[in-house]
């Protein structure tokens, strides 16, 4: 084995990156799985929709990667003009503004969520997908507002809506405003429900805190990727509270399925097909399939 990781890092920007957007996914030529420690090429990994070719571990990916998978690379992003503000002038070891600036630079993202529209097969779908890389996928005012705007768009265009959650929870640096995003997104989802539009909630590793306790658990369909961590309180907090070891598989997608909180777990390779199936069977309002009975 190599000393250090220098072999695995790229030296110049732009190489192997199709867009200016910097992916959550590994750069360079080689990839070592954190689970089984097997090394494969990034090319192999990418071909395998960012799952380890050896052990099938689903590597964390970003919003744009999911859009590519679901929409076959053809999608339009919306609401990129919304930007977070450090209105409380919040500072711990770093100021919120510093954290934001660093995240913009590191990720090339606008915030912890991106909204895109595209087609799954012949059916339109609006997807809001979170990015863990941006301050832990935390939910602040921008995340809440983008979801609200995406829901308005879904209602206006009579188009099914999906959220891909991946978050450490609420963004502390926006204090009560971040807490209120739980109420905001949940309240907006009632409007979507009233309009009779399906809402798919796809929970990916990790989904915790205020995100789980609001929109992520409110899907008409809740589903997840294998082995994803999903919970309200973080495992560390629970361990400190009860002062006991946590049981194996605790807060993993498989346990949540067993306990009745998920409809199914889907392998990333089947994600697109499964969404297509859902949109077909759910009789979405804009279904183009002629065999579907149109709703009045």
């Amino acid at each position: 084995m190599m000393e250090g990781q220098s072999w695995f890092q790229r030296f110049k920007d732009g190489i192997q990156t199709a867009t200016k957007f910097k992916r959550e996914t590994p750069d360079g030529l080689w990839f070592q799985c954190t689970e089984c420690k097997t090394t494969s090429t990034v090319k192999e990994l990418k071909k395998n929709v960012y799952k380890c070719p050896n052990c099938n571990k689903h590597i964390r990916i970003g919003s744009h990667d999911y859009f590519d998978i679901i929409f076959d690379g053809k999608w339009t992003e919306y609401f990129t003009e919304l930007k977070s503000v450090d209105f409380l002038e919040f500072a711990d070891l770093k100021s919120y503004q510093e954290r934001l600036d660093k995240s913009y630079k590191k990720t090339g993202l606008h915030d912890a969520i991106c909204v895109a529209k595209g087609k799954v097969g012949r059916k339109s779908l609006i997807v809001a997908a979170m990015d863990f890389k941006f301050i832990g996928g935390s939910m602040g005012s921008v995340v809440g507002e983008k979801i609200a705007k995406a829901i308005d768009m879904a209602i206006e265009e009579n188009t099914p809506f999906m959220i891909i959650s991946k978050s450490g929870g609420a963004r502390m640096m926006e204090s009560a405003f971040s807490l209120m995003q739980m109420a905001k997104t949940s309240a907006k989802l009632t409007q979507l429900a009233d309009a009779g539009i399906p809402y798919l909630s796809f929970l990916t590793d990790p989904t915790t805190g205020g995100v789980t306790a609001s929109f992520a658990m409110l899907g008409d369909i809740n589903f997840s990727e294998p082995d994803a961590l999903i919970g309200f309180a973080g495992p560390r907090v629970i361990k400190e509270t009860i002062k006991k070891e946590l049981p194996a598989g605790f807060q993993k997608a498989e346990s949540l399925l067993e306990n009745g909180f998920l409809d199914f777990i889907v392998d990333r390779a089947d994600l697109k097909q499964r969404i297509d199936d859902l949109l077909t069977v759910l009789n979405p309002p804009n279904a183009t399939d002629k065999t579907v009975v149109q709703k009045k």
Binding site: M182, S186, A213, M217, F232, V237, I242, Q251
Partner: peptide, 16 residues
């Protein structure tokens, strides 16, 4: 924040 609370869906209960 307890084991049973998580297993019985603390997040789902609040979201609902």
């Amino acid at each position: 924040p307890g084991i049973e609370a998580e297993e019985r869906g603390q997040a789902e209960a609040i979201a609902r």
